[in-house]
Amino acid sequence: QGEKVEGLQAQALYPWRAKKDNHLNFNKNDVITVLEQQDMWWFGEVQGQKGWFPKSYVKLISG
């Protein structure tokens, strides 16, 4: 089970394309609201879409 977080935002360092239905698509420089953190994967929201993404593709910009 991941840790729920509030008020964290991350900026995409690279584009990410979903490999599964529960993954989040985003483009480089998109700002993602992080909702949950697990070891290597984070759950977040961007442009009304929610899903999992690899944390190595983003950098935290707040929180």
Rank of each mutant, 00 (worst) to 15 (best):
I61M: 04
V34K: 01
G63L: 11
H23C: 03
E36V: 12
W52F: 07
P54L: 07
D21V: 14
E6D: 07
G48F: 03
E3T: 05
Y14T: 08
E45C: 10
K19S: 14
S56R: 10
G44Q: 00
T33W: 08
Q1V: 15
D39M: 07
I32C: 00
Q47K: 14
I61T: 09
Y57W: 06
K20V: 10
F43P: 01
Y57G: 02
Q37A: 13
R17D: 08
S62G: 09
Q37Y: 03
P15G: 15
K59Y: 04
W52Q: 01
V58A: 08
N27I: 14
G48P: 02
L60K: 10
A10W: 08
S62D: 12
K55G: 08
V5A: 13
N22G: 13
D30H: 03
Q11L: 06
G63W: 06
A12W: 00
K19G: 11
P15S: 14
K50A: 08
L35A: 02
N22W: 08
D30G: 01
K4T: 14
V34R: 01
Y57T: 13
K50C: 10
L24P: 04
G2P: 04
M40F: 07
Y14P: 02
A10G: 07
T33L: 09
H23G: 08
S62Q: 15
K28D: 09
Q9V: 11
K59W: 01
L8F: 13
A10Y: 14
K4N: 13
D39W: 02
F43W: 12
L13T: 07
Y57C: 09
F26N: 00
L8K: 09
N27G: 08
K19E: 13
W52P: 01
G44P: 00
V5K: 07
H23V: 08
K19H: 10
G51D: 01
K28R: 07
K59C: 08
I32W: 00
F26S: 01
N25S: 11
H23N: 04
D21C: 08
Q1A: 08
H23M: 07
K20D: 10
K4W: 11
M40Y: 04
Q1I: 02
Q38F: 03
G51M: 00
E6F: 08
W41S: 06
Q9D: 15
W16I: 15
L60W: 07
K28M: 07
P15Q: 14
F53W: 01
D21Q: 15
K20W: 09
L24A: 03
K20F: 10
Y14M: 14
L35M: 13
K19I: 13
Q47M: 10
T33H: 07
Q1H: 03
E3N: 14
Q47Y: 10
K19D: 14
V31A: 06
Q11V: 04
V31H: 10
L35G: 13
F43S: 03
W41F: 06
Q1C: 12
Y14F: 01
P15V: 08
L24I: 04
K28P: 02
K55Q: 13
D39H: 03
V46R: 10
P15W: 01
G2Q: 06
V5E: 09
R17Y: 06
T33S: 10
T33Q: 09
N29Q: 12
W52M: 01
G48D: 12
D39L: 04
D21G: 11
I61F: 15
Q49H: 14
F53Y: 02
V34Q: 00
E3D: 13
G63A: 12
V46I: 10
V58Y: 00
I61R: 09
L35K: 15
V5W: 10
Q11W: 10
V58R: 00
Y14L: 14
F26W: 00
W41T: 02
D39A: 13
I32R: 01
K50T: 10
I32S: 00
L13E: 06
G51E: 01
V46E: 02
E45L: 11
P54S: 00
E45N: 04
E6K: 05
A18H: 12
S62H: 04
Y57F: 15
D39K: 06
L13D: 09
W52S: 00
Y14I: 12
M40C: 15
E36G: 11
S56D: 10
D30Y: 03
V34T: 01
S62C: 11
W42V: 04
Q11D: 01
A12C: 03
S56K: 06
I32A: 02
D39T: 13
I61D: 08
Q38E: 14
R17P: 05
N27D: 08
W41Y: 12
Q38C: 12
R17S: 12
D21A: 13
K55W: 02
M40I: 14
W52I: 03
W16V: 04
F53V: 02
W41R: 02
Q38G: 14
N22Q: 14
A12K: 01
N22A: 10
W16N: 07
D21T: 13
L8D: 07
W41N: 09
N22V: 05
E36T: 09
W16A: 03
K4M: 15
W52L: 01
K19L: 12
F43Y: 10
N29F: 07
E45R: 13
T33G: 07
K55E: 04
L35Q: 12
L24G: 01
D30W: 04
K19P: 09
L8S: 10
K59T: 05
Q1E: 04
K4E: 10
W42Q: 01
G44E: 00
V5L: 04
Q9R: 07
Y14D: 10
V58S: 01
G48A: 07
S56W: 04
D21K: 10
V5Y: 12
G44V: 00
G44K: 01
E36A: 13
A10Q: 02
K20L: 08
G7L: 02
A12Q: 00
W16L: 12
R17I: 15
W42I: 02
V5N: 03
Y57L: 14
S56L: 10
T33E: 11
Q11S: 12
Q49I: 07
Y57S: 05
Q47S: 08
I32Q: 00
Q47P: 05
H23Y: 08
A12G: 04
Y57Q: 09
H23D: 12
N25C: 12
V31G: 03
S62W: 11
Y57P: 00
E36P: 01
V31Q: 10
G51R: 00
F53H: 01
G2A: 13
A18G: 14
L13S: 04
K28W: 09
D39Y: 07
G63N: 11
Q47A: 14
K19M: 12
Y14V: 14
P15F: 07
S62A: 15
Q49L: 09
I61N: 11
W42S: 02
Q1L: 08
K20N: 15
K59I: 07
G51A: 04
K4P: 05
K20R: 11
L8T: 13
V46L: 15
S62Y: 02
L35C: 15
K59L: 04
S62R: 10
Q11I: 02
D30V: 04
K55V: 01
G7F: 15
E6P: 15
L35V: 04
S62P: 07
F26A: 01
Q49V: 12
A18W: 04
K59N: 10
D21F: 09
P54R: 01
M40V: 08
R17C: 05
K50H: 06
L24M: 02
W42H: 02
T33Y: 13
W16P: 02
K4L: 06
G44A: 00
K4R: 09
D21Y: 10
V46M: 12
Q1D: 02
E45Q: 15
D30I: 02
V31W: 09
D30S: 06
N29I: 01
N29V: 01
K59D: 02
L8P: 04
A18Q: 03
I61C: 11
N25G: 11
K55R: 14
V5R: 15
Q49W: 05
K59E: 09
F26E: 00
F43N: 03
W52T: 00
G63S: 06
Q37V: 02
N29T: 05
Y14Q: 09
F43R: 05
S62F: 02
L24E: 02
A18T: 12
P54G: 00
E6T: 07
N29G: 13
A10H: 03
E45K: 07
Q37K: 15
W41V: 05
L60V: 12
D21E: 10
Q11C: 03
I61E: 11
